[in-house]
Computed example of a mutant assay.
Amino acid sequence: MPDQPTPPAPADLASLRVEIDRIDDALHDLLMRRSDLVAHMASARLKGSAPTFRPGREALILRRLLRRNQGALARGAVVRLWREIIAASLAQQGQFTVAVSAMAGEDGVATRLARAHFGLLTPLRAQATPFRALACVAGGEAAVAVLPAPDEAERPEPAWWMQMEAPRLRVVAALPFLAPPDAPAEGYAVATLSPEPTGRDRSLLRIEPGPDHTRPRIAAILAAAGLPPLWLIRRESPVPMALAEVPGFLSEDEPRLASLPFPRLQILGSYAEPEPEE
């Protein structure tokens, strides 16, 4: 029978607990200092008219921390801790509410994603449909809406991405931020913001196809333009429309978009590429 590890002596265990308490105090001191700095920025209006919610900036913070993370602390714990810290900072700078789609028959994915990304204490406004959640953001009742990811097998009525009012509303984040490699997003965050590039981004394109633009044909056209879709769906009701996620941060003056032969094309948003869990 292999030797069992010797448990720490009571004196050693007591010393370790004292050290953990000391670290907890130091962490608390730093968090209070961080909170004071956020309060100073808010009271002094150092940001001017700039938005307090900056998903691109948040993604850069998390990526930097994940790059320097080592030892026994799990990547998921880092993201969860700092998502709560970021949520607390947003709450300090003004009312911050998230609208979530709670349509009958859904499994609560939007609520789960919103809680994980925007914190346990952030107020949520449950809405009967994705369109009501989008209306909350458009009307200023919520800062952001969290909606389930598009699915080609959705109900026959129009999907939220087919009727989303762009460019007034933009997809600004894919959720969750930490995900298995190559896994599709489970949901998206929509806000009245201009997205900011982070260096590793993706964009959503809403496409009105022509009569001969089958799904494979649309994918081939995008790939030939240097925009190979990571995924692509096409809906026929109430009108033919396609949605594609492509790599890179795209702006309205993107030259590759001007040459595409579709009757109409819109950028629904750009956002940080999720980070791998491991």
Results as ranks from 00 to 15, higher is better:
176 P>A: 09
246 V>R: 01
75 R>F: 02
249 F>V: 08
25 D>E: 13
227 L>E: 01
78 V>T: 11
242 A>H: 01
121 L>P: 00
17 R>T: 09
40 H>Q: 12
122 T>N: 07
40 H>G: 04
267 I>F: 03
34 R>C: 04
249 F>K: 06
171 V>P: 00
31 L>M: 12
159 A>F: 02
48 G>N: 12
9 A>K: 11
123 P>D: 09
138 A>P: 02
45 R>D: 14
236 E>T: 14
216 P>F: 07
265 L>A: 00
187 G>K: 00
59 A>M: 04
65 L>F: 05
221 I>R: 12
106 E>K: 01
90 L>F: 03
261 P>D: 07
137 V>H: 04
274 P>K: 05
51 P>W: 09
233 I>K: 01
141 E>Q: 13
93 Q>P: 00
153 A>C: 09
201 D>Q: 08
219 A>F: 02
178 L>G: 04
90 L>C: 01
278 E>R: 12
43 S>R: 14
184 P>H: 06
196 E>Y: 02
116 A>H: 07
231 W>T: 01
108 G>R: 04
189 A>V: 03
268 L>V: 05
34 R>N: 13
274 P>Y: 06
81 L>M: 08
66 L>N: 03
79 V>R: 06
256 R>T: 14
95 Q>D: 13
183 A>E: 14
209 P>D: 10
198 T>D: 12
277 E>K: 08
232 L>I: 07
54 R>K: 12
148 P>N: 05
189 A>M: 10
